[in-house]
Design a binder for these strands. Structure first.
Lengths: 190, 190
DNA sequence: GTCTATAGGTGGATAGAC
DNA sequence: GTCTATCCACCTATAGAC
């Protein structure tokens, strides 16, 4: 895939704004003034705001999938995989940004059906990945937890999304690192 | 405090809209059409949107404090207190609504300073309450967890906020109940 | 692909009559 | 306290020239 530089530039700026202020608080005008083109030009690349929003979600989902694949390739330890998963969220807050899909989940009811579906798909993918890591880690004796792995996966994904939201609101790296490291500690065997 | 019925009515409707669609996706016009008054009348009661928003947060914080106080009075078991805390969040989703302050935390950067401060105060209060319950529960031998109670309090508050957000997005009571009950299981002694 | 111009709508907020 | 009328800024989106 060749990265059309103009579209990429638009998506980059749009993503940054949405992740810090939300979908309903951003406009084509914000992007236009930031990259120095007219609003009409933006409509040439993304006819409607919903088109742009959907691309944002798809690109973010792909990006995160790639990151998780890299984690899978670079680490065999499931404890470390889990820690890397948490760190991906911590990194988000260093730029004072939420997870794109976490932000959009809050605004879910105001979005187009296609965006809603894509967002839910994002979370399903996360739960699936975490569940797989948990099961493998437990059978390896590296992770310890009681009960259904799927429920734990939901808990882990939810914790990090909630932690990001609260930490961003408090502008507190301390909050996200506390939650992140406490979470890992809770699943470490021994 | 006598409840001025008109202001209460306005706040009730505003809260319902914000908790389902968010602060930036709601307008005086939405409230006006729902209760059958003009926008100008609303401005008489709440001069600016930010005034209205601040009252919403203050009222919600008071309401939740009252609920927690009731939990403290009605239950001596810290395990049950914790479960009741989680249930307060589950109840929210039954009307397909987020926690007011969770929703506003996502939109935090777009809000007035006074609203931002009030929202952060809400979360501080929660962490404080949970931490106290955790410490008492552990010393009673009813709850079990390793490490700092403050970090666990942050984890618990974050989990439920995140679970609400994802569950609402998926319209899945299953998601919030899974997280809620898994969370309680994790802190139960034995 | 980019622009100017503009349409058509809605946002929060105010003036002033009743 | 409530209304109508109105202001002005901003929104998403389109038309049509270059």
């Amino acid at each position: 895939m060749v990265t059309n530089s103009k579209q990429t530039q638009i998506l980059d700026i749009a993503e940054a704004i949405v992740r810090s202020r939300g979908y309903n608080a951003f406009s084509y005008s914000d992007i236009a003034s930031e990259i120095g083109v007219s609003k009409a030009s933006l409509h040439h690349h993304f006819p409607t705001k919903s088109d742009l929003g959907l691309k944002l979600v798809e690109r973010f989902t792909d990006m995160f999938s790639g990151a998780l694949q890299q984690v899978d390739e670079q680490h065999s330890s499931c404890l470390i995989k889990l820690r890397e998963y948490a760190r991906l969220h911590e990194g988000s807050l260093q730029e004072n940004k939420m997870c794109l899909c976490g932000m959009l989940a809050a605004e879910h009811e105001t979005l187009s059906q296609s965006m809603q579906d894509a967002i839910n798909g994002y979370f399903d993918g996360h739960e699936h990945w975490i569940k797989r890591v948990l099961l493998k880690g437990r059978s390896d004796g590296e992770l310890a937890f009681k009960g259904d792995a799927g429920r734990h996966a939901k808990l882990i994904a939810s914790s990090l999304q909630g932690a990001l939201m609260i930490a961003k609101s408090k502008r507190s790296m301390d909050h996200i690192t506390a939650v992140s490291s406490q979470l890992i500690d809770s699943y470490r065997a021994i």
